[in-house]
Computed example of a mutant assay.
Amino acid sequence: MSTQPELTPLTPRAAEIVTVARELLEEEGRDALTMRALADRLGIRAPSLYKHLPDKAAVEAALMERGFAEIGTALYAALQAALGSAPRGEPVDAVLRAYRRTALAHPNLYRLATSGPLPRQRLAPGLEEWAGTPFFLAAGEPYLAQALWSFAHGMVILELDGRYPDGSDLDRTWAEGAHAFTSRPAR
């Protein structure tokens, strides 16, 4: 499998700040992630943060990188486990299950990494593509892979937002989606 690109290097203090930022994000959500709140958690004054990271966008970019790295790592592991003697369709199902599990485990990090404009110029080169490649490897075609990711992302967001009716069998909905992406006729 493909090797993960190196994340943007951080000094030890900047890495500590990003770790605390993630804790704040995961516990309280994106709106709570302010430089003042981050400084308070670290027991320092907000201007001191700028000695280590130039702005809030840099903190968010570092968090996004970690989110992409975690999603990519989970997807590659699921794909690896599903390849080989697996029946047709198993890689798609495995990638979808891993994506859902990872996103639901860290909903605020997931939202940060996947909503709004993506500051690609601030991210480690090749990281976004690396993290998404398992969708291509599972689907076998770039547009189908993009549709597969769109399905997965939409399902995750709707699930996180509680938009499905009570009693919905979301496991079955995910399974039906996987089946739809693996049972279509070849073009």
Rank of each mutant, 00 (worst) to 15 (best):
R22M: 04
R22Y: 04
E23V: 10
E28H: 15
G29F: 11
A32Q: 07
A32S: 12
T34P: 02
M35W: 12
M35Q: 15
R36L: 11
A37R: 12
A39K: 14
D40S: 12
D40V: 15
R41Q: 12
L42H: 10
L42Q: 11
I44V: 15
R45T: 15
R45Y: 12
R45I: 13
S48I: 02
S48E: 12
L49V: 07
Y50K: 09
K51F: 13
K51H: 15
H52A: 05
H52P: 02
L53G: 00
L53Y: 05
D55K: 04
V59R: 02
A62W: 00
L63T: 03
L63D: 01
E65I: 13
E65T: 12
E65N: 11
R66E: 13
G67R: 01
A69C: 12
A69R: 07
E70K: 09
I71T: 11
I71G: 01
I71K: 02
A74I: 01
L75S: 01
A77P: 05
A77F: 03
A78C: 11
A78Y: 06
Q80V: 13
A82R: 00
L83F: 03
L83E: 14
G84M: 06
G84R: 09
S85P: 09
S85T: 14
A86H: 04
P87E: 08
R88D: 03
R88H: 13
E90Y: 04
P91M: 01
D93F: 02
A94P: 06
A94R: 03
V95A: 00
R97N: 07
Y99E: 03
Y99C: 01
A103S: 12
A103C: 12
H106Q: 14
H106R: 15
P107R: 07
N108I: 03
L109T: 12
Y110V: 07
R111Y: 10
T114R: 14
T114E: 13
G116H: 10
L118N: 08
P119T: 11
R120H: 12
R120I: 09
R122N: 05
R122S: 06
P125A: 10
G126N: 10
G126V: 09
L127T: 05
E128V: 15
E128I: 10
E128G: 06
E129R: 14
W130L: 06
A131H: 00
G132M: 11
T133I: 04
P134L: 05
P134K: 01
L137V: 05
A139Y: 02
G140Y: 06
G140I: 07
P142A: 03
A145M: 08
A145F: 02
Q146G: 07
A147H: 01
L148S: 00
L148A: 00
